[in-house]
Design a protein around this nucleic acid. Structure first.
Lengths: 217, 217
DNA sequence: GTCTATAGTCGGATAGAC
DNA sequence: GTCTATCCGACTATAGAC
C-alpha cells in the first residue's frame, strides 16, 4: 500500500489525500490512513500542512490547477472564446458539445479524473471553506462559459434561463457520478468501461439540441 | 434544540437521525448530537437500536416507507400502470411529466423532503448496507417505471437506451440538489423558493419531449 | 526532516443505580 | 425504561530524540 519514497513527502501526501479524501470524505479519512498510503510518517501532516485540514486544502489547490488546465485546453483549442462576441450559433453549439463531451469523460472516465468530481460533489453536499476555493476559481467561470454558449445557441438574452438550462445539461452528466451506484446495479455493469463512457458521451451531446429546443443539425 | 418529550424516544431518535444524518453524513454525526437533538439520553441509542449504525438503518427503513407512499400516490392516481401494457404514448408522457414534476418538488422543496434526497445521495456517493435497502425496495422500481414509460413514449424496444435516457432525465432534476451550492451562489439565491421550485419543475418537464427526441405536443 | 512516544480529546458502548 | 458515570479505543497533534 505504501508508495515509493522516491518523491518528497509533501507531494506524496497530496496524492494520498486526493485518493483517500475522495473515497472516504473528510470526516471518514484519518491521518493514519493518509500517512500510511503516502508511505510517510504521521507527523509529516502537521509538519507540512499544519494538520489534516491543511492537507485537505492543499488537495483542493492541487485539483484546482488540474481543472483549470483541463478547461483551458478545451476553450483555447477552439479560439478566442469567451472574449469573442462574434461567435455564431453553430460554433457555439460545437464548442458546447466539445465541452460537455470532455466533462462526460471526466465524470465517467479514469479513477484519477473521477476523484476530482467526487471531491467537488462532496463539497457541494456539505460545503466547507474548500468549496469557496473551487467555486470562485473554477465553477463560476465554467457556469459563465456554458450559460453564454447557450445564450448564443438559443439566441436568447435571458441569462437566468440560460443558466438554468446549463444546470440541467450538467446534471445529465453529473448523474453518472452522483447516482453511479444505482446505475451500475441497474444496468448490471462493473463500472463504466471505455465503450460505455463513449456511449454516454454521445447520448448526452446528441441530446443537447433537443434539450435546448433548437432544430437538430 | 431538544424536542418535546411527549412522544416515545424511539420515534424521536429516528426523527433526529433523519435530520442530522442528512446534514452531517454518517461519520460526521455523533451519538451525542443525536441524543441531544432527540431530547433523550445517550444510552437510548444502543438500547433501542443496538447502536449508531442500527439507528441509521432504522432511519432508512423510515424513509423507505415514505418514499414508497409518495411513488404509489403518483402511480395509482393515474391508473393501473405499470401492469397496464395498453398505455398509449400520450398517456405515458403525461404520467412521466407528473412523476418527474413530483421528483422536482421533492428535490427542490421543503427541508423534510430534501433530507431524503440527501441521505440517498450520500449513500450513492459512499454506499453502505443501507443502500441495498433503498435500491432493492425503491430505486429499482422507480427506474423500471421511468424506463418503461420512455420506451412507450419513444416507441423503442431498446431497454438499455431507455434506461440511459431515464438517468439523464433524473440527472436534470437531481443536479438541483447535488450542485445546489453552486446553483444558489451563481443565481444569488437564498435556497429555492416556492416560485423557483415551480420554475424548475416547468423547465424540466417541458424539456422532456426535446430530450427524448419526440415532437412536442 | 524524520522518527518514536505520548499527550489530550472525543468517539461509541456499557454497567449498574433508580 | 431512563438515568449517571465510566470505560476503552481511536483520533489529531505535539514534544523531543536523532
Amino acid at each position: 500500500m505504501a508508495k515509493q519514497k522516491n518523491t518528497d513527502p509533501r507531494a506524496r501526501l497530496i496524492r494520498a489525500g486526493l485518493e483517500i479524501f475522495a473515497e472516504h470524505g473528510f470526516k471518514g479519512t484519518t491521518t493514519r490512513m493518509l500517512a500510511q498510503h503516502a508511505g510517510c510518517n504521521l507527523s509529516a501532516i502537521p509538519y507540512y500542512f499544519g494538520g489534516k485540514e491543511g492537507l485537505y486544502h492543499a488537495v483542493f489547490q492541487e485539483i484546482l490547477g488540474l481543472m483549470k488546465e483541463s478547461l483551458d485546453s478545451v476553450l483555447e483549442k477552439t479560439g478566442s472564446f469567451p472574449e469573442d462576441d462574434t461567435m455564431n450559433p453553430e460554433q457555439a453549439l460545437s464548442l458546447l458539445k466539445k465541452l460537455l463531451g470532455v466533462m462526460c469523460e471526466i465524470v465517467c472516465g479514469k479513477p484519477e479524473a473521477v476523484r476530482f468530481v467526487k471531491l467537488v460533489v462532496n463539497e457541494q453536499m456539505m460545503p466547507s471553506s474548500a468549496f469557496d476555493l473551487i467555486y470562485e476559481n473554477h465553477m463560476k467561470r465554467l457556469l459563465d462559459t456554458i450559460s453564454r454558449l447557450i445564450m448564443i445557441i438559443t439566441g436568447s438574452q435571458d441569462k437566468r434561463r440560460a443558466s438554468l438550462k446549463a444546470f440541467t445539461l450538467i446534471g445529465q452528466i453529473l448523474v453518472f457520478r452522483t447516482a453511479r451506484e444505482s446505475i451500475v446495479r441497474y444496468l448490471d455493469l462493473d463500472g463504466y468501461s471505455e465503450e460505455e463512457t463513449l456511449e454516454i458521451r454521445d447520448l448526452v451531446t446528441s441530446a443537447i439540441e433537443g434539450c435546448l429546443g433548437v432544430p437538430s443539425t
